[in-house]
Computed example of a mutant assay.
Amino acid sequence: MNALSHLPNSGNYLVLLRGRLRLRIADIVRLEADRNYTRLVLADGRTLLMARTLGSFEKELPNVFFRANKSVLVNRLYVKVLMKDWVELKDGFGVTVARRRKI
């Protein structure tokens, strides 16, 4: 059982690959842009590379995700350190927050 399963968003899923893959929103740590692809990093350490833009995921995901900069969407549930211009996640990943982005 996931440590985040008690959260209200734990029942929400992101449906991918025309319904063949369902990911729990609470299991997605971050999404990273790679040109017209997006890498999804999951809580269990797996990564998935999808042929979709980060912007298309941003429209689909709930407000628990925020756009730190032009290439990273971060799940607020996994934030460890939050500063004005820097976010560190529980898995040790750190990212600079763009000046115009509000957390």
Score class of each variant (00 low, 15 high):
residue 1 M to F: 07
residue 2 N to I: 02
residue 3 A to Y: 12
residue 4 L to P: 11
residue 4 L to G: 08
residue 4 L to H: 13
residue 4 L to N: 10
residue 7 L to S: 07
residue 8 P to C: 12
residue 8 P to N: 04
residue 9 N to R: 05
residue 9 N to A: 07
residue 9 N to Q: 14
residue 10 S to H: 13
residue 10 S to G: 00
residue 12 N to E: 05
residue 13 Y to K: 15
residue 13 Y to V: 08
residue 13 Y to H: 06
residue 14 L to E: 02
residue 14 L to D: 03
residue 15 V to K: 03
residue 15 V to A: 07
residue 16 L to W: 05
residue 17 L to G: 05
residue 18 R to P: 11
residue 19 G to A: 09
residue 20 R to D: 12
residue 20 R to S: 12
residue 22 R to W: 04
residue 22 R to K: 14
residue 23 L to Y: 01
residue 24 R to L: 05
residue 24 R to F: 09
residue 24 R to Y: 15
residue 26 A to M: 08
residue 27 D to K: 05
residue 27 D to Y: 07
residue 30 R to E: 01
residue 30 R to M: 04
residue 31 L to R: 08
residue 31 L to M: 15
residue 32 E to M: 06
residue 32 E to C: 04
residue 32 E to P: 03
residue 33 A to Q: 10
residue 34 D to K: 02
residue 34 D to T: 12
residue 35 R to C: 03
residue 35 R to T: 08
residue 36 N to R: 09
residue 36 N to L: 03
residue 37 Y to R: 10
residue 37 Y to P: 02
residue 37 Y to A: 12
residue 37 Y to Q: 11
residue 39 R to N: 14
residue 39 R to L: 15
residue 40 L to G: 01
residue 40 L to P: 00
residue 41 V to M: 13
residue 41 V to K: 12
residue 41 V to C: 12
residue 41 V to E: 11
residue 42 L to A: 03
residue 46 R to G: 01
residue 46 R to F: 06
residue 47 T to H: 15
residue 48 L to R: 08
residue 48 L to I: 01
residue 50 M to I: 15
residue 50 M to R: 13
residue 52 R to D: 09
residue 52 R to N: 06
residue 52 R to C: 06
residue 54 L to E: 12
residue 55 G to C: 13
residue 55 G to N: 14
residue 56 S to F: 11
residue 59 K to R: 14
residue 60 E to C: 00
residue 60 E to G: 00
residue 61 L to V: 01
residue 61 L to M: 04
residue 61 L to R: 00
residue 62 P to H: 10
residue 62 P to T: 07
residue 63 N to G: 11
residue 64 V to A: 02
residue 65 F to D: 09
residue 66 F to C: 00
residue 68 A to M: 08
residue 68 A to P: 00
residue 69 N to M: 04
residue 69 N to A: 08
residue 69 N to E: 11
residue 70 K to G: 14
residue 70 K to S: 12
residue 71 S to K: 00
residue 71 S to P: 00
residue 74 V to Q: 10
residue 75 N to A: 04
residue 76 R to P: 04
residue 76 R to Y: 11
residue 77 L to E: 15
residue 77 L to C: 15
residue 80 K to D: 04
residue 80 K to T: 00
residue 82 L to A: 05
residue 82 L to R: 13
residue 83 M to E: 14
residue 86 W to R: 10
residue 86 W to A: 11
residue 87 V to L: 02
residue 87 V to S: 09
residue 88 E to A: 00
residue 88 E to M: 03
residue 88 E to D: 05
residue 89 L to T: 05
residue 90 K to Q: 10
residue 92 G to E: 04
residue 94 G to H: 01
residue 94 G to N: 03
residue 95 V to K: 11
residue 96 T to A: 13
residue 96 T to E: 15
residue 96 T to L: 14
residue 98 A to C: 06
residue 98 A to N: 08
residue 98 A to F: 07
residue 99 R to E: 01
residue 100 R to N: 14
residue 102 K to D: 14
residue 102 K to E: 15
residue 103 I to T: 13
residue 103 I to P: 11
